[in-house]
Design a protein around this nucleic acid. Structure first.
Lengths: 113, 113
DNA sequence: CGGTTATATGCCTGTCAAGGAATGGACCAT
DNA sequence: ATGGTCCATTCCTTGACAGGCATATAACCG
């Protein structure tokens, strides 16, 4: 469902930069604006996207809105990653072992459906 | 550098679907075309993007091009993820109401730069 | 209250990427 | 050689998104 939204949110480098900023500590909008060199409205729009995907939470502190990272959605990314991580760990093992492969053409590439 | 390219490549749901297909086993283009319901040219273009980010490799087998997953770039994703994974594991620990990391909040949120 | 700070939203424009259709090109079979 | 299969590339159109500017909203301060 929101898996696509999560990927879309993290696809933007500015948004990843914001995420990285908030990893250090929660920050108000103005600080994020100065850090990522965008205009305040653009930054606000990026924050809105991150909010809607659940990647950040807001806490109101007087006139300021302090944004903080919510790591929960990133867990979904890790879950997506899990099978691939296993695969590349196997690859590293293979490198450590040997490089010659038995005929791995055992799979006849038959269409499954 | 190519970190942005990696994110951009994985941002597209069709490309993630292709990656998932290739996780099971290497496949020729025609099979991928049928599996993801796109036209052959569109599929080829997606495969080109995946090729250019190093996510897949091609092996020529007569007239067919057999694509296979290369998990190496995904390691970069895992590296990116690492700090956040730590964070959300801490959150889970906090849910278990065991906060036996007393001086971990020694960071007074002072502006670093 | 009026002014100021801090943030969000709407509108507009340029850019970029995805998708389809048509085409090109490599390889095989007869 | 010729036709056929499999795949890549080009051209074109369309839609989505980012960014800036102007403006609205909200909270503090006097």
């Amino acid at each position: 469902m929101s898996d696509a939204a999560l990927w879309a949110a993290l696809a933007d480098p500015h948004r990843r930069a914001i995420i990285a900023l908030l990893l250090e500590r929660p920050r108000p909008v103005g600080e994020i604006v100065r850090a990522c060199g965008l205009s305040q409205p653009s930054t606000s729009k990026h924050l809105k996207v991150l909010r809607e995907t659940g990647l950040v939470r807001v806490r109101q502190d007087a006139q300021r809105r302090v944004y903080a990272l919510d790591p929960a959605p990133i867990a979904a990314l890790d879950a997506w990653l899990a099978p691939y991580r296993k695969l590349w760990n196997d690859s590293l093992d293979a490198l450590g072992h040997r490089l010659d492969e038995p005929p791995d053409t055992a799979e006849p590439c038959a269409p499954k459906d």
